Simulated scan of single mutants.
Amino acid sequence: MAYEIQTAAAKYETIARFPDYAEAQAVVDTLSDREFDVSTVKIVGEGLRSEEYVTGRLTKGRAALAGLGSGAWLGLFIGILFGLFAPAFGWLSIILWSVVIGAVWGVIFGFVAHLATGGKRDFKSVRTTAADTYLVQVRAERAHEAITVLNR
């Protein structure tokens, strides 16, 4: 006979329901401010959906410019890492050259990546997950206490 550890899933009770996340977060924050053990609390989104907000048109120039920025940041990071181990007199030039080289490669990769889409994605967007309702749930053994704390 094989033995294994089995943990029972904690039972939760819903103490509040809200149409947006900010209200659910405010309840948890109130519980925390009133020194309730919030490690027994969770926020559950129901009716999940993916939303994509289009933020603008993406041209080859804008793709290259975005690549320049991200390449420069990556170059700065790499330059700092190499600069840490460089002689005291050469660290600044290492960082500057790393930023320049990173920016150039970023422009190239940004331009080519956009070109590779063949015009099928000529826009910028931000993707997010949203819910229809947000439940504030507390472990069953602490739910009554949480309601009492909120009603104070």
Rank of each mutant, 00 (worst) to 15 (best):
Y53C: 00
Y53V: 13
T55W: 08
G56C: 05
G56A: 05
G56H: 06
G56D: 13
R57H: 13
T59Q: 08
K60E: 12
K60G: 13
K60W: 11
G61A: 13
R62H: 04
R62T: 14
R62Y: 06
R62D: 10
R62P: 02
A63Y: 01
A64Y: 02
A64Q: 04
A64N: 01
A64C: 02
A64I: 08
L65M: 07
L65Q: 04
A66L: 11
G67K: 10
G67S: 10
G67M: 11
G67V: 12
L68E: 01
L68A: 01
L68Y: 03
G69T: 08
S70A: 14
S70Y: 15
S70W: 15
G71Y: 02
A72Y: 07
A72H: 06
L74P: 00
G75S: 14
L76D: 05
L76E: 01
L76F: 06
F77L: 04
I78L: 15
G79Q: 07
G79N: 05
I80A: 10
F82G: 02
F82D: 02
F82R: 00
G83L: 10
G83I: 14
L84W: 11
A86Y: 08
P87L: 09
A88E: 15
A88G: 11
F89Q: 14
G90E: 14
G90Q: 14
G90S: 15
G90W: 14
G90P: 01
W91L: 08
S93D: 09
I94S: 09
I94K: 07
I95P: 02
L96H: 03
W97E: 05
W97V: 03
S98C: 14
V99A: 08
V99C: 07
V99K: 08
V99W: 09
V100A: 07
V100G: 01
I101V: 15
G102D: 07
G102T: 08
G102E: 07
A103M: 09
A103C: 03
V104C: 09
W105M: 14
G106M: 09
G106P: 13
V107H: 03
V107Y: 06
V107L: 13
I108F: 09
I108S: 00
G110Y: 02
G110D: 01
V112F: 05
A113F: 13
H114V: 07
H114N: 12
H114M: 10
H114R: 09
H114A: 02
H114Q: 12
L115G: 03
L115Q: 00
L115H: 00
A116C: 10
A116D: 10
A116L: 15
T117Q: 05
T117R: 05
T117V: 03
G118F: 07
G119K: 05
K120I: 12
R121D: 12
F123K: 13
F123R: 14
F123L: 11
K124T: 09
K124E: 13
K124Y: 03
K124G: 03
S125L: 07
S125H: 04
V126L: 00
T128V: 09
T129H: 02
A130V: 15
A130Q: 08
A131I: 06
A131D: 01
A131G: 00
A131W: 01
D132F: 00
D132E: 12
T133D: 12
T133F: 13
Y134A: 01
L135D: 08
Q137I: 11
V138K: 03
V138R: 06
V138Q: 06
